[in-house]
């Protein structure tokens, strides 16, 4: 922090503007949480009273309940796949010196660069063509979602783990070798613990970005097989009541908890 305390009116201006803008970002979420407890039948302000019925209602609606669990399952599985695919790739990228390394890095990052709606559409068409050819249903099934979500998680995992790996002082592995450790021991007892921030941050971002995905899921959900975000979207087409608020609040609480817990153990700023 700069030992400079001049410019009080300037500082005041910046503080005011910043608080307003940050409020603009955060307040909508505050409102939706608050309004999830309103007893107003039509979602409106000010509150007529408070109730928990919307939460009960959200739980009763199959789309939301099943959607929540489906989203959780799909996101967890795809995060695991991102880890299995991404960890070795990160090693190769961080440690290797070979021609085409930049090109390969770009390819692995490409899912982030292609718009969700375009890659979602491409996957949809691709899966349906496979279905026409082989009668194997992918679009509308768990497999389709898992593939799409793994595409989302992989670049996040690779980027964050590679950053972590690059930050590892290679001398500590050499020191372990000089003290008698074999390559697997070095990996599990020296390298892995040191890149823990990257692994945790990568998993967190892979999981959450899969959970909140909209554009790819749009194409890949099916009857009785819908994700939470799509369920919300469909519900909003016809009704606008605080059931939305209840679902939103639960999702916000889940993500906030994940972030805070992760940040407590692994300073997220260090992973970037």
């Amino acid at each position: 922090m700069h030992a400079n305390d001049r410019g009080d009116p300037v500082r005041l201006a910046y503080t005011t503007i910043s608080m307003t803008v940050i409020g603009f970002i955060v307040l909508p979420l505050v409102f939706i949480i608050w309004m999830s407890f309103f007893s107003n039948k039509i979602l409106s302000f000010p509150p007529e009273g408070y109730t928990l019925e919307w939460y009960a209602r959200a739980w009763d609606l199959a789309d939301f309940r099943d959607g929540f669990f489906l989203s959780m399952r799909m996101s967890l599985i795809s995060t695991a796949i991102s880890l299995v695919l991404g960890l070795p790739a990160s090693f190769a990228l961080a440690r290797g010196r070979f021609p085409g390394r930049d090109a390969i890095n770009t390819i692995l990052m490409s899912p982030l660069m292609v718009p969700g709606i375009v890659s979602g559409g491409a996957l949809f068409v691709f899966f349906l063509e496979i279905e026409f050819l082989t009668d194997v249903i992918i679009a509308g099934s768990s497999l389709g979602l898992i593939i799409a979500y793994s595409l989302i998680g992989l670049p996040w995992m690779v980027r964050l783990v590679t950053t972590s790996l690059i930050g590892v002082n290679p001398s500590i592995e050499e020191a372990a070798r000089s003290l008698g450790a074999g390559p697997l021991t070095v990996f599990f007892r020296i390298t892995l613990p040191v890149i823990k921030p990257g692994l945790i941050a990568g998993s967190l971002f892979a999981f959450v970005n899969a959970f909140i995905d909209l554009e790819k899921s749009l194409f890949l959900v099916g009857p009785d097989h819908t994700t939470l975000q799509i369920a919300l979207l469909n519900y909003l087409e016809w009704t606008f009541d605080s059931t939305i608020g209840a679902v939103a609040t639960v999702q916000i609480a889940l993500v906030a908890a994940l972030l805070i817990i992760t940040d407590h153990y692994v300073k997220l700023s260090r992973a970037f």
Binding site: V26, P28, I32, V255, L259
Partner: peptide
């Protein structure tokens, strides 16, 4: 505070604006 909304998802954030 600024990062958390990024991980909430556009559906929820936009529905909050509808409110």
């Amino acid at each position: 505070l600024i990062l958390v909304p990024l991980l909430i998802g556009n559906v929820v954030r936009t529905s909050a604006w509808m409110l």
